[in-house]
Structure formats: structure tokens, C-alpha cells
Simulated scan of single mutants.
Amino acid sequence: MTAAVQLADGTRFDVPVGVTLLDAAQAAGLTLAHSCRTGRCSSCKVRVTEGATRALRPDAVLSPDERAAGWALTCTDTCDAPVALAARDLAELAGFKLLTLPARIDSLSLLAPDVMQVRLRLPPNHGLRYLPGQFVELVGPNGLRRAYSVANASATQGVELHVRRVPGGAMSAYLFDQAKPNDLVRLQGPRGSFHLGDVAGLHLVWLATGTGIAPFKAMLEGLAAQPEGQWPARIDLYWGNRLPADAYWQPEPGALGGRLNLHPVCSRAGADWTGLRGHVHERALEKEGRDAASLRVFACGSPAMIDSAQAAYAAWGLSDVHFHADAFVPSGGA
């Protein structure tokens, strides 16, 4: 017995009894937006436009009110009767093979007092391919495993990660206090579905908090390597940190021919800070003159920011399929 699912792009697939929507789509050769696959982030959060879903296991994302309003998680939910979802098949992710590779730490550099740039050297002919925005899992001593967004557009010259020190975090303690160049680790990826897709001529809003800037750095590098005809018309990047000094990265001046506009946002800046304050999505929504039809929003960082941004943009009139997110969730301390 199966139940039919229809996506917003017209794609259909069947869900067997007891199988999640995400797993059923994958078995049918389709890719839906996802990240953690465990119900702890909001990357696979989707609006059910017809029918109803049923949770197979608990999640840490959706409130009872959100479920009542028609939201579901494809990684925890199934359906017992036909449903329609405001989602699309991410066909562009097909063909990116999940690999587990040995890697050597090439360099460790402090970008900020609590952010480490980790560069990894891969074996010759490693075959790792990913789309800018996706993440990998770093496997360290004693099988310690944590997920990090890749901060560079291609693994041709290795992989760059941005790691924040987390109090009590086992992996960050290793990387900040014990690791040294040439240490052997493992890398598994690519994972997740966060990526740009076709954005030619569109207006992009990028929302980042903390090290959530990493995938946007990779996306910017990826766009710069493409012909100008594939570039978006404009990118507004809102990067939220507590203090101005926490902003550890700056794009190249005139990036993408001046189409990139960086808007630093600080939540705890002193009286001398004359820039934006508060929440990144609120500052982004204050901009006037945007066309919802040409706008695409990409958010990466804390789950609280992503949930708030998604709700605010939905209320503003943005289609659900035009909001893309990757939430950073703790894994027992990173």
C-alpha cells in the first residue's frame, strides 16, 4: 500500500507505509530539501497544501500550532493518503556521489578568537564534488563526527571549513587545542541540499549568522567562476554577529561587478556602532521596492533565525519554494 505525493513542480512519487517522505522521494530518484535528516533542523520544513502528513518520530522543530497550520518535516513525516507539498525536486543534485575520504589537515588559522579556519588536503584524484552551499562531516579522533558547511566553491585545492569554538564542544576542543598540520582525519560528503540553483537575473537575499557565512563565501566564489550571464541581478547579504569585531570575513571589493551588497548587522554593538542592529531578517525586510516574483531568500545559521525569517517572509508574500535554508544544530557540542 502506498500514498501519492505531488510536488509544486508537478513531480509525483509514492510513499510506502512507514517510510518518510524524504526517504520515499530518494528511493524514487528525487531529491527534496534536507540537511540533518533527524528532525533537529528546519531545512526540510515544508508546507502541506493538500491532504495531511503524520509524524513517524518526534522532531525538535515544529510546534503544535505550526503542524496545525499545515507545516511538516519530510525527514520525520509520512502520509497515509494523497498529499501535495510546496516543494520541488532538486534534480541538479543528482549525480553528486557521497564519498568517505581520508584527509590531512593542511593548515589551522584563527579568523577570530573563537573561529578557526581549517584547510584540509585530500588525496590525489579524490573525486569529491559538491555544489557551493552543501556541507561535509568531519570525522576526527575516536570517531568524533561533526558537520560543517564548506567555505570554498571547489575541492580542487582542498576543503575549507570555518569552525566556531563551542564551550564543552569535543570537536572544537580538538581543532583549537590539539590538532596540528598533517594530522589525519576523514571527510564524508557532500551532504545536504543547500545550494543556489539557477539564479540568473534574480534578486537574492542572503541571511547569515556567525559561521553561517561559510556557505555564502563558497556560493560567491562559485558565481564568480561562472559567465556573467548566469549571475543574479543583485545580492543583498545580511550577516549577523554580536559585535563588529566578530565579522571575520570580507568579500573582495567590487565582487560580481558590484552586484553584491554586504550589510553587517550587530546585536550587541556599543554606542559607536552606526550600522544595522538587531535581527538579520528584520533588517532585510525593511528594504523597499522588492519584487516577490524575482526574489530568492537563502538563510544559514541558527535555527531560531531561520524559523523567524521563514515565517516573516511567508507573511510578506514570498513563495515557500523560494525560501532556502540550512540550520546549524548542535551535535552534543561542536
Rank of each mutant, 00 (worst) to 15 (best):
residue 151 A to W: 12
residue 263 H to K: 09
residue 273 W to V: 13
residue 65 D to S: 09
residue 68 A to L: 14
residue 316 W to K: 15
residue 328 F to M: 06
residue 273 W to F: 13
residue 86 A to E: 10
residue 245 A to D: 12
residue 154 S to P: 04
residue 102 P to E: 07
residue 253 P to M: 00
residue 179 A to C: 05
residue 116 M to Q: 13
residue 297 V to I: 11
residue 56 L to Y: 03
residue 180 K to A: 13
residue 244 P to E: 14
residue 129 R to S: 13
residue 58 P to T: 08
residue 303 P to V: 08
residue 322 H to G: 05
residue 78 T to E: 01
residue 202 L to V: 01
residue 103 A to P: 07
residue 253 P to T: 00
residue 210 G to Q: 06
residue 51 G to N: 08
residue 173 A to L: 01
residue 216 F to Q: 11
residue 96 F to R: 15
residue 60 A to C: 11
residue 306 I to W: 02
residue 163 V to M: 12
residue 198 D to R: 15
residue 4 A to R: 15
residue 65 D to L: 14
residue 84 A to D: 05
residue 126 H to N: 13
residue 9 D to L: 14
residue 152 N to W: 12
residue 73 L to E: 08
residue 94 A to P: 01
residue 254 G to K: 03
residue 72 A to E: 02
residue 279 H to A: 09
residue 45 K to V: 00
residue 153 A to E: 08
residue 331 S to W: 00
residue 222 G to P: 14
residue 275 G to A: 06
residue 162 H to R: 10
residue 2 T to N: 13
residue 238 Y to P: 06
residue 154 S to K: 10
residue 217 K to Q: 15
residue 294 S to E: 12
residue 153 A to P: 02
residue 169 G to N: 09
residue 246 D to K: 09
residue 286 E to N: 12
residue 201 G to N: 12
residue 332 G to T: 07
residue 330 P to M: 10
residue 93 L to Y: 04
residue 177 D to L: 04
residue 186 R to K: 11
residue 275 G to N: 04
residue 136 V to S: 15
residue 296 R to T: 01
residue 105 I to H: 02
residue 268 R to F: 09
residue 232 P to K: 03
residue 43 S to K: 01
residue 318 L to H: 00
residue 2 T to Y: 06
residue 77 D to G: 00
residue 322 H to P: 02
residue 298 F to H: 15
residue 296 R to G: 06
residue 42 S to L: 11
residue 98 L to C: 04
residue 123 P to D: 11
residue 40 R to H: 05
residue 97 K to Y: 06
residue 57 R to S: 14
residue 321 V to F: 01
residue 28 A to E: 05
residue 180 K to D: 12
residue 200 A to H: 09
residue 173 A to C: 03
residue 277 R to H: 15
residue 65 D to M: 08
residue 62 L to F: 05
residue 127 G to A: 05
residue 138 L to H: 07
residue 26 Q to V: 03
residue 104 R to Y: 01
residue 328 F to W: 12
residue 65 D to T: 11
residue 83 V to P: 08
residue 309 A to W: 03
residue 244 P to M: 13
residue 156 T to I: 05
residue 32 L to S: 10
residue 174 Y to L: 13
residue 23 D to R: 14
residue 79 C to Q: 01
residue 245 A to E: 15
residue 226 Q to F: 06
residue 65 D to P: 01
residue 75 C to F: 14
residue 103 A to F: 07
residue 241 N to M: 10
residue 318 L to Q: 03
residue 21 L to G: 09
residue 265 V to T: 09
residue 263 H to G: 02
residue 143 G to D: 12
residue 258 G to W: 03
residue 281 H to E: 11
residue 12 R to Q: 11
residue 168 G to A: 09
residue 320 D to Q: 07
residue 284 A to F: 04
residue 269 A to K: 02
residue 234 R to V: 07
residue 165 R to T: 00
residue 32 L to K: 03
residue 221 E to L: 05
residue 279 H to T: 01
residue 311 A to L: 07
residue 43 S to I: 05
residue 36 C to Q: 04
residue 48 V to D: 03
